[in-house]
Design a protein around this nucleic acid. Structure first.
Length: 340
DNA sequence: AACCGACTCAACCGCGGACGA
DNA sequence: ATCGTCCGCGGTTGAGTCGGT
């Protein structure tokens, strides 16, 4: 296979040399510029037809990987010339970045990754390459495929693209995010500025616990009247706390600067979400993790939707939970994006 | 077993931005 | 300022696979 390709390369080069030598030299008044251009175009076509398309073979992979490993990335057209690969530079770059890079993760997206993609899409729209920067080991292509598949599924199921109440995220444009049509994204109209339109709140203390599903949301009873969550139906404010309410005390010194004073109240206590909570436990993170499984390949939104009866007596908690789980991670992401 | 539709994923294509001549 | 080249991005396509009938 390799030798065949090498032979083809040599044949092509010979043809090229012959044709170039046939080209009129400077000062040759026998041919005009138009004819010259036709020959050049013909050469380009010849070259294109010589280039291989379609799936990469293991041999091609080996050649490309060896070359990039020793010479580094970049100059993809040079790669083709130096290796004899019958692939255009673009194809080489794509193959390397999407499949041969040593730092690539393989396999299905984890639950955390899926959640992150959803959050990032809510934040920045179809900016797959930017999203890939936030998901180490994942390529823009993978993320794009994941999202398109998810979008199709949810459309068919009649579900919104984003979790309910996600519009709270976009303070400047609160009604624009949760569209079923992904092309109508909140931030698509203002590319480049999207990352700065997300909430200013920074919930650094409430990042995913051990990279797992966020497990805590503030109890309504301590929600400040004028908080972001004020959009809640007022009737919800009188609901009873779930029996598994957990009171936890956490250091929130880092939050003091980024939150309004009236948030201090609810920062004092947070509780774990309803699903499968072991009553009396004081380890919130373990509960969140156990309730959703570890490493299960589930759509986090579908999964939440199917938590079912555990939420039914506490609708406002579910709503808050959805808001909170989106907010806490996006805030950290937007923080980083904003610094770029 | 055969067929068919849904799904996944790798790869291609076209476009636009960056950059140097 | 213009042009050509290279590179990266996002959209799209098509082959292969899977699951249901």
């Amino acid at each position: 296979m390799i030798s065949a390709m090498a032979v083809m390369s040599i044949i092509f080069l010979l043809i090229k040399v012959v044709v170039i030598s046939w080209l009129p030299q400077e000062g040759d008044n026998g041919k005009d510029d138009q004819e010259d251009q036709l020959v050049v175009d013909h050469l380009a076509e010849e070259e294109d037809s010589f280039l291989k398309k379609g799936p990469w073979t293991a041999e091609e992979d080996a050649i490309l990987a060896a070359y990039v490993t020793s010479n580094g990335v970049g100059n993809w057209n040079i790669v083709r010339k130096n290796t004899g690969l019958a692939r255009c530079g673009k194809s080489c770059r794509l193959r390397w970045t999407n499949h041969l890079r040593p730092d690539l993760k393989k396999g299905a997206f984890t639950q955390e990754e899926q959640l992150k993609v959803i959050q990032l899409h809510a934040l920045m729209g179809n900016k797959w390459a930017r999203m890939a920067q936030e998901l180490p080991g994942r390529t823009d292509n993978e993320i794009k495929n994941f999202w398109n598949t998810r979008q199709k599924k949810r459309k068919r199921a009649g579900l919104p693209l984003y979790p309910e109440d996600i519009e709270v995220l976009n303070v400047d444009n609160p009604q624009s995010i949760n569209q079923n049509d992904s092309t109508q994204h909140a931030n698509d109209s203002q590319p480049g500025t999207s990352s700065h339109n997300v909430p200013e709140l920074v919930f650094n203390n409430y990042k995913l616990v051990n990279g797992k599903h966020p497990s805590c949301v503030p109890p309504i009873s301590v929600m400040p009247e004028n908080s972001t969550f004020e959009q809640q139906d007022n009737s919800d404010k009188q609901v009873m706390h779930p029996p598994h309410l957990q009171i936890m005390h956490r250091s929130h010194e880092q939050l003091q600067d980024s939150l309004p004073n009236d948030y201090n109240g609810y920062l004092e206590s947070i509780f774990c979400p309803p699903p499968k909570i072991v009553e009396g436990s004081d380890d919130c993170s373990m509960q969140g993790e156990s309730s959703l499984g570890n490493g299960e390949n589930l759509d986090p939104i579908m999964n939440q939707d199917t938590l079912g009866d555990t939420w039914k007596d506490f609708p406002s908690y579910k709503s808050l939970y959805n808001k909170y789980m989106i907010m806490e991670d996006i805030s950290s992401i937007s923080d980083r994006v904003g610094r770029r």
